[in-house]
């Protein structure tokens, strides 16, 4: 059976789903516009000649917003049970913690790389 918006099936549950999904359409549209806008901002601010830590912080925050927007709206976490969010966050927290710890565990090598390749 191929489902289609068949007028013979005005089942109340189904109609409610359609109405809800219709609302989601506008949410998704707004989110995608915001995502593009943020990406554009990111592309521009990296060239700002201001303190690099301000730029780096801004980049981090903007990326985090993009990341959260995608998982919250596109990936339906807003409309799903809390457990899905928790499950994913366990992975995010442990992965994030590991990456951070690793970054602190390594320092710049004062000797530099053992061989330098000419690239151009």
């Amino acid at each position: 059976m191929i489902p289609s918006p068949d007028p013979r099936l005005p089942e109340s549950g189904h109609a409610a789903v359609i109405a809800e999904e219709h609302k989601k359409y506008f949410t998704f549209f707004n989110v995608s516009i915001a995502l593009i806008a943020i990406t554009a901002i990111e592309l521009v601010i990296v060239y700002f000649p201001i303190n690099k830590w301000i730029v780096l912080t801004a980049l981090g925050v903007l990326s985090l917003i993009k990341f959260l927007a995608v998982i919250w709206w596109f990936m339906h976490l807003k409309w799903d049970r809390m457990l899905c969010t928790i499950l994913f966050m366990i992975g995010m927290v442990i992965a994030g913690g590991t990456v951070t710890a690793l970054m602190f565990l390594f320092e710049e090598d004062p000797a530099g790389p053992p061989m330098m390749f000419m690239l151009f």
Binding site: L102, L105, F106, P113, P114, M115
Partner: peptide, 12 residues
């Protein structure tokens, strides 16, 4: 090590 790799990274 020849190309700049760090064996310690494997340990981590």
């Amino acid at each position: 090590v020849e190309g700049g790799g760090k064996p310690i990274l494997w340990q981590h």
